[in-house]
Design a protein around this nucleic acid. Structure first.
Lengths: 217, 217
DNA sequence: GTCTATAAATGGATAGAC
DNA sequence: GTCTATCCATTTATAGAC
C-alpha cells in the first residue's frame, strides 16, 4: 500500500504524460466550447495549462485531432449518466418522468457539452463520423426507451405506436434548445432561460409535454 | 412604364452599389452558414461573387460587420412569414396547428437560417445584442401566441395557465433541434432526420405534442 | 465603385536544446 | 517529455490605379 515515495521524478513542470494529456484536454474543452473549432487558438489552450504549445502537438498531433479527442471524451461523460439510471423498479410513468428529468438536468448542468455538440453540427459532424465509440451509444438509449415504452404500453399508461427514436428526438429537442439557444433567446425576448425561477417551470413543462404526448386516449 | 433603356451604364462588372451589396450579402450568408464566423474566409466570400475583396470592405467595413448585416437580414426573412399568418379565421385548435406547422416548415426549409442562429449562439449572441430590429420581433410572435391561447381558453379547447413565451420555447425547440442537430444525430443514430419519410412523421409528432400539451383534461 | 497588388498580423506547426 | 525560439502559410485589411 505505502509506495514509499517511489516516484522517480520530482516533476518540475509536468508530472507524467497522462496528467499532461488530461490537463490539455480539459483546457482544450473549455477553449473549444467557448470559441468553436475555428475560433479556438492553440496558443490560448496552452495558456490555460501549465505546459506549452509543443506539448500539445507532441501529445495530440494537431489542433483538429485534439478537438476530436475532446469531443469523444465529452460524449463519454454523458454515457455514464445514462448507465446510472435504474428505471425498472419504477412504474412506467414515473420511470419516464425520471428519464426526462435526468436528461433535462444533464443538459442544464453541462452547457459546455451542449456547445460542443452545436459546434460539431456546424462542422457537419465530420469529426464524429469516424469515431469508434459512437456505435455503442447508438443502441443504449434507444433500447432503454423502447423497453420502457413497451412496458408502459402493457401497463396501459402509454399509447401504442410510439417510435423510440422519435420520442428521444422530442426529449432531446426540449432539453437541448433551451441551453444551446439561450443567448439569442435572451437577446430577442429578454428572458434568461437559465434563471432559477424559469428553469423549474421549464422542467415541469418538458416532463408534462412528454407524459401528455404518451398518455393514451 | 417603358423606361426606354434609360440605364446610364452598361455595367461591365458590378452594376450599382445596391446590387453589389445584395450579391455580397447572399454570398456571405452562404459562407457564414457553412463555416461559421471564424471559419468563414473573406476571400471565399469574394470568390462566391463576381466582385472582389476590396468591394466587400468598401461596402461593409469588416468581416464582422458583414456578419452582423447577414444575421439581421436572416431574422428579417422569418418576420415576413410570421406576418403572413391569418389565424383569426380559424378555430383555436386549428389555428395552433397551423402556427406550429408553419414554424416547422420554415425551419425545415431554411437550414441556413438555423445554422446562423446556432453560430450566433456560439458567439453568445453578442452581434444580435446591439441590433435595432430585434426589439420589434420581441412583441409580435409572443403577442400572437398569447392572443391565441386566450381565445382557445375561452373556447374551452386549451387549458389555462400556459405561458406564451414558454409555449414558444417548446415549439421552437421541436422545430429547431431536428434541423440544427441533424448531423450529430445522423452520425450517432444513423437516421437522416431530413429524409422525406421521417419529416412527415416528425411534423405530425410536433403538432401532436403541442396540441396534447394544451388540451384540457 | 471596382480592380491589382501588397501590407500587416495572426496562428498552426516545428527545430533543436535539455 | 517539455521547453525557447522561430518558421511559414494563411488571412484580414488596405494602398493606389482606373
Amino acid at each position: 500500500m505505502a509506495d514509499g515515495m517511489a516516484m522517480p521524478k520530482p516533476a518540475p513542470r509536468g508530472r507524467d504524460a497522462e496528467a499532461t494529456r488530461a490537463a490539455i484536454i480539459a483546457a482544450a474543452r473549455a477553449e473549444f466550447a467557448a470559441k468553436g473549432l475555428s475560433g479556438a487558438r492553440v496558443d490560448d489552450i496552452a495558456a490555460r495549462t501549465r505546459t506549452t504549445k509543443p506539448a500539445i502537438y507532441y501529445h495530440f498531433g494537431s489542433k483538429e485531432d485534439l478537438y476530436r479527442v475532446v469531443l469523444e471524451e465529452a460524449y463519454a461523460g454523458m454515457r455514464e449518466v445514462e448507465r446510472g439510471l435504474d428505471l425498472d423498479s419504477l412504474p412506467a410513468t414515473e420511470a419516464m418522468r425520471r428519464l426526462v428529468e435526468v436528461s433535462f438536468d444533464y443538459h442544464a448542468a453541462h452547457p459546455d457539452w451542449v456547445r460542443l455538440v452545436s459546434i460539431e453540427n456546424i462542422h457537419d459532424a465530420v469529426h464524429l463520423a469516424g469515431s469508434a465509440s459512437v456505435a455503442d451509444r447508438n443502441a443504449n438509449v434507444i433500447g432503454v426507451l423502447g423497453a420502457l415504452l413497451a412496458r408502459g404500453e402493457r401497463e396501459g399508461v402509454f399509447r401504442p405506436g410510439i417510435d423510440p427514436l422519435e420520442l428521444h428526438l422530442m426529449i432531446s429537442s426540449l432539453c437541448f434548445y433551451r441551453v444551446s439557444n439561450r443567448h439569442t433567446w435572451g437577446a430577442i425576448f429578454g428572458r434568461d432561460l437559465q434563471a432559477a425561477e424559469h428553469v423549474a417551470s421549464q422542467r415541469r413543462m418538458v416532463v408534462e409535454a412528454v407524459l401528455r404526448y404518451l398518455r393514451p386516449d
